[in-house]
Write a protein that binds this DNA or RNA. Structure first.
Lengths: 239, 239
DNA sequence: TAATATGATTAGGCTATACTAATCAGATTA
DNA sequence: TAATCTGATTAGTATAGCCTAATCATATTA
């Protein structure tokens, strides 16, 4: 097979796609992703990252400042968001149509996202009614590569008395996810912070509208990302 | 990562799985699969096959007789049938639940079969009601690795007057599959051969029970594998 | 400012998969 | 039987990942 006859813009490999995704997550607020953090997230040795970083910057997917870290280029960001879209649509499809649960779906989607075609992703999206959020409440990027940038606070930092909507759960850990689901703490739930203990102590919340109480330790409270809900909206009577 | 801590029975790579599948298909009747045929099916150069053959026989998945060809061992056959099961369940799921058509589904399944977990395959199988045949009429191996060995004849060789059920269509070519679907020639259809021209000429068939005629050229007639249907069964009145 | 600690990179290898060019074995034909 | 043809194998390379050990750059601390 003549190299000149092959695709001029070859598909990214599995591994490249994984690197781009973690760089996206690590450099989210316009910062740099550090080599060692990338290595830790992917569970590879730091020199493997240096090697891949060289390849990725040669192909224009990332910008590398030695000893500083890396950032995605526009092209790299597009590729990363494409994978994130695939991942989140897969998670939702598997939970809604194939009986997967909240906790178990991540690993399966992680494998599949590298194998599904664009056509299949869009068929799943349309079967799902073009959803905006995945089962963890994370926003699903559009096919064009846009993503909702929500203003969220961790429950651990939210002011007492505010009406909040739980929007995202910042972990893929199956045990934590199961526990949260048992407690009724899933994306979409409305709540208020009724009390917080000092010295990084637990947060006590009241679910809305039921008024049920939950006490959430510091660690979990930092994983629960919430959006402030305007008070004159729904549910004001229930307080 | 210490090599001793890794999985003692690592998953087969994509490529190994593909080799096993084509060896299965090429050596179907207990024969040997030739190096050059494997190379042609996988679109790789013959030396690549020689190299892979060495690795596969070292790991006990195939038996190699130099300058003769290769055969699967029991272990290799199990691995091949596992991939075939995945492929066929995927094809059926994609056609029945995601709107894929007969012709377009093969390539997608080919990619996915390497990424899906056993759990996902079994969830799809159970959503489908544990089907026995894929959309082309090919039998789906069981999870335990058994496969129906049907006694089929190509339409091109079937005797005139016999009542037949079209069971399998021996191609993945999208144009041919679409044409056959238009002609109503899909697995499950009942028919009889009403006439055959000599010198490798076309076969004329009558569909049962409608009686509609179709004229099928030699090439297609060799792809249409049929099962003889006992005459005193269903549909006898319709003749 | 000098010494040290931390984190990043280079050097040098390993494996799986592919390739081309060269050689070898077996089958066919003269 | 000898010559030839076909198809299979070996030899030698390439690439994309990964690794460990050694070195280098930056930041921190004395």
């Amino acid at each position: 097979m003549n190299a000149l006859l092959r695709d001029a813009n070859p598909p990214l490999t599995r591994s490249v796609e994984d690197y781009l995704k973690v760089i996206y997550h690590l450099s989210n607020q316009g910062g740099f992703a550090a080599t060692s953090d990338i290595a830790a997230m992917l569970e590879v040795a730091p020199p493997s990252v240096s090697g891949m970083v060289k390849r990725l910057s040669e192909t224009g997917l990332i910008e590398h400042v030695p000893y500083r870290g890396v950032q995605l280029t526009a092209q790299g960001r597009r590729a990363a968001l494409k994978m994130i879209r695939r991942h989140r649509i897969l998670e939702l499809y598997l939970t809604q149509h194939l009986g997967y649960d909240w906790g178990g779906v991540h690993a399966e989607a992680e494998q599949l996202e590298h194998a599904v075609s664009d056509e299949l992703v869009e068929r799943m999206a349309s079967t799902l009614g073009h959803p905006l959020y995945d089962p963890h409440g994370d926003p699903i990027p559009t096919a064009a590569g846009e993503i909702e940038e929500a203003e969220l606070v961790p429950l651990a930092d939210a002011a007492v008395g505010l009406k909040l909507e739980l929007r995202q759960v910042g972990t893929q850990d199956s045990a934590r996810l199961h526990y949260l689901a048992e407690q009724g703490l899933t994306p979409g739930v409305l709540l208020t912070v009724s009390e917080r203990q000092p010295f990084n102590g637990p947060t006590t919340i009241a679910l809305v509208p039921s008024g049920d109480r939950r006490v959430v330790g510091r660690e979990l409270a930092q994983l629960l990302w919430c959006r402030e809900v305007p008070v004159d909206g729904y549910g004001a009577a229930a307080r």
